[in-house]
Design a protein around this nucleic acid. Structure first.
Ligand SMILES: [Mn+2]
Ligand SMILES: [Mn+2]
Ligand SMILES: [Mn+2]
Ligand SMILES: [Mn+2]
Lengths: 216, 216
DNA sequence: TTATAAATTTAGACAAGTCTAAATTTATTA
DNA sequence: TAATAAATTTAGACTTGTCTAAATTTATAA
C-alpha cells in the first residue's frame, strides 16, 4: 500500500492541519526531523498519488483519501498506546516511540480485534480520541487550564505537549487524566496558578497551565 | 540498529541453518523471495558487520552475534503469534504474515513485558519453541508421524510445513497441537496411515504424515 | 514599491536494497 | 580429465528517501 515514510508524512500533515489551514514545508520538516528539500520531494509523490492537495509554494492539505489513511494510522497509534499502558503497564510517557513503530503494522483485522480485546476504548492514555474503524471519533471540548478564572473547575482530559518530560512532570504532580481540579488562585505577577486537586494544593506555572487541558 | 531487510536475512539464515551446515545463496533467495544477486549483495553487508561467516561461493553461517540477533527476532515472531492466537483469537493459519511485521518492533522491554503478560509461554501456536530473553529454549524431541510404526502413539506437537493450506487441513481433521494420536494401520500400497484420535479414525496421506510431528 | 529576508523548490549527489545480464567459479558427468 | 551445467558473483542500472548548495518565489519592511 503506502510506505512507512508516506504514512508518517500523512500523519504529520494530519496533526498539523488541526491548527492551520495549509501546512507549510518547514512545519513538516521540523515535525518529521528532516529537511525542507526532502519534504518537497515527498509532497510531489503524495500529490501524484492524490493523497494531498498541493500547489508549489502554497502549502499542503490532505485529500479525502489522504485523511482516511491518516486517521487509520492515528487509530492504530492510539490503540497501541492504550494497549501498552493498560495491558503491559507502561507509563504514559513511555509509549509514544513504541506506538510510532506499531502504527505501521498493516493488518486492519488485527487493529479491529485489538480494539475489541480492549473493549473499544474512546481515548488514549494522553486523552486523545481514538478513531473507530470508519475514522469517526468525538473529541473532548478542551480548554487549557490557563484560560480558566479563579473559582473555575474541570477534569483533566488532555495535554497539548506530549513530550516525555512534560508527562513525567504531570505524573509527579499527580495531575493525570481524569483528575478533578479547581483554580483557587492566580498570581498576578507571573500568571502562575494554584490548583486544588483532591486535598492538595498544586502550584503550576503559566507554561504548564497552557499545556494542560480540561473539560469543564 | 539493524534494518528490516538485514533482520529478515538473519532470521532466514537461522532457519535454514537448522537443516544444513552452510546456507547457500540460492536457498536464501528462494526463502526470501528475491534474486541470488540481491542475496550476494546483502551477504557482503552482513559479513562486513560481522554478523555472518561468509566466504565467496562457499555459503554462509551465522556468527555468534548474528545468531543472537536472529534468536531475538524469532522470539518476537513467536510471542506475537502466541498473542494473536491466545488474546485476539486468530486461528493458527492466520498469524504468520502479521507476526512477520511485528517481529521488527524494536523495543526489547516491550517484548519482555508481552512475554510476562502472557505468562511466559514456551511454545508458539505451531509448536515451535519460544526463546527466552537470553535466546535459550528447549525444543521438543519431535518425530514425523510417518516414522511411527503400527501401534505407536504420541502427542501432536509441531508441524514441518507452516503453510496456511496445511494448517487449515489439519484443523479440519482436528489434528491440532496437543492431541493424542495412535497409529492403527499403515496402508502398504501408498503408505497412507490411519490414526486413532479421541474416538475418531483419521486417514492421512504419507505427505501429511511426513509433515506432522509428534512427541512420543 | 523596491530591497531584503524568509520560505520553498530545484539540481545533483548518495546509501540501501533490489534487479537483469554477463562473467566467473564450482560441481557434475561423459 | 575435459566439457558442460549449475551456482554464484560482478557490473551496471533503477527506486526510494534523504541530503547540501544553489536558484526561485513569496513575504516583509524600509
Ligand atoms: Mn511512525
Ligand atoms: Mn497518545
Ligand atoms: Mn519479517
Ligand atoms: Mn509459528
Amino acid at each position: 500500500m503506502n510506505t512507512l515514510a508516506e504514512e508518517n508524512y500523512l500523519k504529520s500533515i494530519y496533526h498539523l492541519s488541526l491548527n492551520t489551514q495549509n501546512v507549510s514545508t518547514n512545519q513538516l520538516a521540523a515535525l518529521l526531523n528532516t529537511k525542507a528539500a526532502s519534504v518537497t520531494d515527498m509532497l510531489k509523490k503524495l500529490a501524484d498519488k492524490q493523497l494531498i492537495n498541493y500547489a508549489r509554494y502554497q502549502g499542503v492539505s490532505l485529500s479525502a483519501a489522504g485523511e482516511k489513511i491518516a486517521l487509520q494510522i492515528v487509530r492504530k497509534h492510539r490503540l497501541w498506546e492504550y494497549f501498552l499502558v493498560e495491558k503491559l503497564n507502561f507509563k504514559w510517557d513511555e509509549v509514544h516511540e513504541m506506538a510510532e513503530e506499531m502504527e505501521h503494522i498493516s493488518s486492519m483485522e488485527l487493529v479491529d480485534r485489538l480494539d475489541k480485546f480492549m473493549n473499544f476504548p474512546k481515548y488514549d492514555p494522553h486523552g486523545d480520541p481514538i478513531p473507530d474503524s470508519d475514522g469517526n471519533f468525538k473529541a473532548h471540548e478542551l480548554k487549557p487550564i490557563a484560560s480558566i478564572e479563579v473559582g473555575g473547575s474541570g477534569i483533566i482530559s488532555g495535554v497539548r505537549d506530549h513530550s516525555a518530560g512534560f508527562l513525567q512532570y504531570l505524573e509527579k504532580q499527580q495531575l493525570t487524566i481524569g483528575k478533578k481540579i479547581k483554580v483557587t488562585e492566580i498570581n498576578e505577577y507571573d500568571n502562575s496558578m494554584i490548583l486544588q486537586a483532591d486535598d492538595k494544593k498544586i502550584h503550576i506555572s503559566r507554561e504548564v497551565a497552557n499545556n494542560l487541558l480540561i473539560v469543564i
